[in-house]
Amino acid sequence: MSDFLASLPAWWEVIRFPLGAALCLAGGLLCLVGTVGVLRFPDFYTRLHAASITDTSGATLLLLGMAMMAPDWMVVSKLVAIFVFIYLTSPASSHAAANAAHTAGLQPLIGPVSTHDKEGQGS
């Protein structure tokens, strides 16, 4: 048992690079999915939801993966700082955008949306 516990840091050194890279790849793919949502969704307010995928889960997975691959604690503290910034500022800026659009009189699309009339709603 003590042998196993003593070998844990060595195992962690081996396993953290592939695990961190896999988390980074998952986060990058989630960013891509959010972008696809921004391109596909029919009006501004629904695009806002797609953009928040990038800000929350994509950023979390990418920063977690980078923290696993970090060479020292300084890098981890910088990644934590970026995480806190993103989590404090992204809801503020998306609320600001939504509130500005609502105040300016942009009406959201209400009710079920089918695929064939997804383009040409705005302007």
Partner: peptide
């Protein structure tokens, strides 16, 4: 098939 139904 997009099946969203946005609401306020």
């Amino acid at each position: 098939e997009m099946d969203i139904s946005p609401a306020l």
